[in-house]
């Protein structure tokens, strides 16, 4: 049960039940849909980028507790970041999820460290990375990204 409690720790459950920035952003400058055909999860990520900085990030869609919490945490972590900084945060999250020591240390990713519990559940890593891939796609100008393509 310890691994399970690490996976579904308070921060994750809290963000799952009360996701932050959970809405569409009609005036967004970038948006992309992330799709996991294996579980049917769909997440749409919206960004407003001004002068190379992310002024606002929101998301919508349906998914499991892990993907929803990850999306919610992501919107908080990326708001106010420059695009290159945001990409670095994603790299840190990826490392945390796959068990590699995060380059910049856990401090750098703050509350996102709560996602670390996923590393013991290989089947669930894609749940956690889905919204981040949608973010990357949005920045790259791709409309849709799938975990299986």
């Amino acid at each position: 049960m310890d691994d399970l409690h690490e996976l579904y720790q308070e921060v994750i459950l809290e963000h799952h039940k009360r996701p932050r920035n959970f809405r569409a952003l009609p005036q967004s400058t970038h948006r992309a849909a992330g799709h996991n055909p294996l579980c049917g999860d769909e997440v749409e990520v919206y960004l407003t980028v001004r002068d190379g900085r992310i002024a606002e990030v929101t998301f919508q869609g349906q998914g499991c507790a892990i993907s929803r919490a990850s999306a919610s945490l992501m919107t908080e972590a990326l708001t106010g970041k420059r695009i290159d900084e945001a990409r670095k945060v994603f790299a840190g999250v990826k490392d945390a999820l796959t068990g590699n020591a995060p380059e910049a240390g856990m401090d750098e990713i703050g509350e996102l460290a709560a996602l670390q519990g996923v590393r013991r559940f290989p089947a669930r890593i894609k749940c956690a990375t889905l919204p981040w891939h949608a973010f990357e796609a949005a920045v790259a100008g791709t409309k849709r990204v799938s975990t299986e393509a």
Partner: peptide, 13 residues
Amino acid sequence: EAHPHDIGTFLDA
């Protein structure tokens, strides 16, 4: 309240 994948992970534990 729980997504099928969350149920699956819980039951597996």
